[in-house]
Computed example of a mutant assay.
Amino acid sequence: MKRYRRIALKILSKSRRSLKKYYKAQRKFLNAVNIYIGPKYGLLDHKIMVGDREIPVRIFRPIKNENSGVMIFFHGGGWVTGNIDSYTNVCVNMANQTGNTVVSVDYRLAPEYPFPCGLEDCYNVTREFFQNPKLLNCKKSDITLIGDSAGGNLAAAVSLMARDKGEFLPSKQILIYPATYNDHTENSPFPSIKENGRDFLLTSRRIQDYMDLYAPNIEDRQSPYLAPLLAKDLSNQPATLIITAQYDPLRDEGEAYGMRLKEAGNKVKIYRMNDAVHGFFSLPWKSEFVVRTYAIINSFLNVCNGKSEELL
């Protein structure tokens, strides 16, 4: 990483503002800086009913609808920030770069709705589309789960929960620098927490704050639906693509999850994005990291769909 970039990241990482105290302001800031300014796109705002409660989703259609693929997307933000508006740029690009329809889930956020509320929303939306794939003019095998950061955690947890409940089972999942463990203190077994936990925007302290807001009940942190790496059995999981970032404190736990999945007999590909920091997936679509990410994603989807034999 170039020296001037490292210095800038170090300065930006020194914020002393308390996430726990100012998370609402952080939400407003993210919405303000992520206004969509790109080309027109096709979308449909929809609601999934669970009992008498509505879960909003936003459906993005690609400019060139080249296939019947569907990506159910869970956004990042530490389970505390982010929504379908702040991730519109990401989802428009995802639809157009993959040719897939993208369904963005506006799950409930902590601390107002702690674990497992957001996860339950993600699971219920996914179940609805798996049980009624005609709603999206697709087959069950066309559906891929995808999420970044906390959203990657949710995608992995939905897949585990789907296997355990036996109501449906995704065939593909894409986890972008996912959180998969429950300890991000100095006691973490993963070197990347110590190596990258101070000077690369996402600090270990901030991850701990997110976890405190998402799972205030300490006992919940032992659930594999909160920390998938704690699952004793990782068999019968989807074909999985995991993309991590070199300077991300979550790097090692994401890669460890991929290795555990592989050891359990699942098909897994793991890529480390060199020179990248946590959050690169939300950069402008012509960023070198984003371009590379979609080349990897499309290669993975082509292999899963039988259109190619090897990933890049």
Rank of each mutant, 00 (worst) to 15 (best):
T144A: 04
S149L: 01
P216G: 01
L213R: 06
I176W: 07
I174C: 06
E167C: 12
I143W: 03
E128W: 03
H184R: 10
P133E: 03
N153A: 05
T203S: 07
K165L: 11
F168C: 11
A215H: 07
L201F: 11
A155W: 05
Q173D: 04
H184Q: 08
K172G: 02
D121F: 12
E167R: 11
N124T: 01
T185V: 04
V125P: 10
R163W: 10
G147L: 04
F168N: 10
D148L: 00
A155P: 10
A215L: 07
L160I: 13
L160S: 06
A215T: 15
D121K: 08
G166D: 09
N196K: 05
T180S: 02
E186K: 12
A215N: 09
L175E: 02
D199V: 02
K139A: 13
L175S: 03
K140F: 00
L202W: 00
T185R: 00
Q208M: 14
R163K: 14
F129G: 10
G147T: 07
N132A: 09
E120T: 12
F200Q: 01
I207M: 13
E186N: 14
C122P: 10
C122R: 00
L201E: 05
G118E: 01
T203G: 04
S141D: 15
F190Y: 15
A162H: 04
Y113H: 15
T180Y: 00
I176T: 00
T144K: 04
S192I: 08
P116E: 06
N153V: 11
K194E: 13
K134E: 15
E167K: 12
Q131A: 15
Y210N: 08
R163V: 08
P216W: 00
S204E: 03
M161I: 08
S171W: 06
P178L: 02
D199Q: 11
C117G: 01
A150R: 00
S204Y: 00
R127K: 14
T144N: 02
N137R: 10
C122L: 01
E128Y: 15
E186H: 12
F200P: 03
K140L: 07
T203V: 03
Y181K: 01
L213H: 08
Y210C: 13
L154A: 06
G118V: 07
L119I: 03
N124L: 06
N182Y: 14
R127F: 01
L213I: 13
Y210K: 06
D212P: 11
Y113G: 03
N153E: 04
Y123I: 08
I146C: 15
Y181R: 04
F190I: 10
F168S: 11
E167I: 04
L201C: 05
L136R: 05
G166W: 06
L160M: 11
D142C: 10
D183S: 04
E128R: 12
C117P: 00
